[in-house]
Design a protein around this nucleic acid. Structure first.
Length: 499
RNA sequence: GAUCGCUUAGCUCAGCUGGUAGAGCAACUGACUUUUAAUCAGUAGGCCCCGGGUUCGAAUCCCGGAGCGAUCACCA
């Protein structure tokens, strides 16, 4: 073992160079900067919990081994704050407990390094649980200085571009993404307990379907074929119900929409869609409402959530109101009283709501709803009985031929769930697809394509089915009190940096 | 895509009506061995986002561009 007897040259004042010099010194002393393995006995939080009752100033003989990133060094390295994924623990490096060789290692350590420490548990007279180190070990040398310890990393762009740094520095970011993981895990468990099986359907699809949105396109070289990235998982999932794969199937997966980016929209986002044989949309209302409620309870221990100034109560039954009734409440106008799109368009115009010239009755009702009602739905509300014109995959309402059995669940003014009693009559489905094509010819850019194979699947027989989709990112925003969708996505879409 | 705003040291930020760049933390040297944003003394550290222009002189004013943010439009 080399002895650091001779007075060393001063290290560079450039943080990176200084770390290179320390790396060289480690090499000279035969210390590995990136060893393969360290056997730790406890996570930081395990020790904090286990010794919660240990009184101030008490030393134990309990030997432990901890590891983590150095987040702070005080008194010339006498005190190291180690952070691991569970929490933080202080390592106490006192000269009375460390050999000369061990003591001299401290000068090689920097804030940001991953190190291990073996020693005994004690609580300092001032109350900080610590490991009195007998030995420390470099586990991974960090070559770059961390952001400032007090203010941390606040630059929003850098937090998203270098999420690892954000996670090192910001506990809230770690908490949010951990909670997201818990939410998804809970949802999966809930669905499995219902007897639904999880499936995966293609992301690459030659045909667009299941929603109205602008797609991303790509190309497969060997097949010399263009593909869309999926905008929904709906149609393949219902094919699996036709096949009788299971009474209920669900998919948690990424959708891609080539549209604007906002605090509520990321080009790739995650949804769950579920399809349940022999359910109708009333059953699905119960199912999704309960799922949202139980998810909140599972991750937050509460059915109350706070979004900005809004306190949202998930514990009571969600309100159930029809779209036209909500519009009527907000505007005093009953759009069901209008026989056609001309009367409806005139009424919308009076309300100051812009509608396209090709808009049909349903488009106009939806436009008025979007403008006058949507943002007011802070408390959970199932908005039911949507116009048929805008719902080509939903089954006609059992009491009104202009409407379908569909609902959208709004919370905090955001659409969280979209669901319906599935249309399973192949002839009517084909007709609806054809209406979409006709609407496209009239100028509506966002319509669905005819999926002939899907119609064929229906011809073999889709049982009465209830289906639903939920935006996982938005649910995560609600349950983590996040104002921006990017906070609940580990690597949100950013414009590539060029120059 | 439109409007407004932001961009200065590794990080967090000052920098006035234009006069040639500052602090704290991090780093380095030293003191100090029971600290908690440790403390004290000192040292070093800059493509002031990029490109033009005005000016004797630009971080600062003007024009163009980039990235980011907020609002709006489209959407979940």
């Amino acid at each position: 073992m080399a002895q650091p007897e001779t007075k060393k040259d001063a290290l560079s004042t450039n943080p990176r160079e200084a770390r290179e010099q320390k790396l060289a010194e480690m090499k000279a002393r035969g210390i590995e900067a990136y060893p393969h393995k360290f056997d730790r006995s406890h996570k930081a939080q395990e020790l904090q919990d286990k010794y919660a009752a240990l009184e101030n100033g008490v030393e134990t003989e309990d030997a432990v081994a901890v590891a983590g990133r150095i987040m702070a060094m005080r008194n010339n390295g006498m005190f190291l704050d180690l952070q691991d994924a569970s929490g933080k623990i202080q390592v106490f490096c006192h000269k009375d407990t460390l050999s000369e060789t061990e003591l001299s290692k401290l000068e090689l350590y920097d804030i940001g390094d991953i190190v291990g420490a073996k020693g005994t548990i004690r609580r300092t007279p001032r109350g900080e649980l610590s490991v009195r180190a007998k030995e420390t070990m470099m586990l991974a040398k960090s070559m770059l200085p961390l952001p400032e310890k007090y203010h941390g990393l606040t630059d929003i762009e850098q937090r998203y571009r270098q999420r690892y740094l954000d996670l090192i520095m910001n506990e809230e970011s770690r908490e949010t993404l951990r909670k997201r993981s818990k939410i998804v895990s809970y949802i999966r468990k809930y669905m499995e307990e219902l007897g639904a099986i999880e499936v995966e359907t293609p992301v690459l699809s030659p045909l667009l379907g299941g929603a109205n949105a602008k797609p991303f396109m790509t190309h497969h070289n060997a097949l010399d074929s263009d593909f869309f990235l999926r905008i929904a998982t709906e149609l393949p999932l219902k094919r699996l119900i036709v096949g009788g794969l299971a009474d209920a199937v669900f998919e948690i997966g990424r959708l891609f929409r080539n549209e604007g980016i906002s605090i509520k929209h990321n080009p790739e986002f995650t949804t769950i869609e579920g399809y349940h044989s022999y359910m109708d949309y009333f059953d699905i209302m119960d199912l999704t409402e309960n799922l949202i409620r139980q998810s909140a309870l599972a991750v937050n221990g509460s059915m109350e959530i706070t979004m900005g100034e809004n306190v949202i109560d998930l514990s009571k039954p969600f309100a159930r109101k029809s779209m036209v009734d909500l519009v009527k409440e907000a505007t005093g106008i009953d759009f069901l009283s209008f026989a056609d799109e001309k009367e409806a368009a005139a009424a919308a115009k009076k309300l100051g709501v812009f509608t396209e010239t090709f808009a049909n009755w349903g488009d106009i009702v939806a436009a008025v709803f979007d403008e006058k009602v949507e943002h007011t739905l802070i408390q959970p509300t199932h908005v039911t009985d949507t116009p048929m014109d805008i719902s080509p995959l939903a089954k006609v309402h059992r009491n009104n031929p202009r409407l379908v059995e569909r609902f959208e669940t709004y919370i905090n003014g955001w659409e969280i769930v979209n669901a319906f009693t599935e249309l399973n009559d192949p002839k009517i489905q084909l007709q609806r697809f054809e209406e979409q094509v006709a609407a496209k010819e009239k100028g509506n850019e966002e319509t669905q394509m005819v999926d002939e194979d899907y119609v064929t699947a229906l011809e073999y027989g889709l049982p009465p089915t209830g289906g639903w989709g939920m935006g996982i990112d938005r649910l995560c925003m609600l349950l983590t009190n996040s104002a921006n969708i990017r906070d609940v996505i580990a690597f949100p879409t950013l414009k590539p940096k060029k120059d």
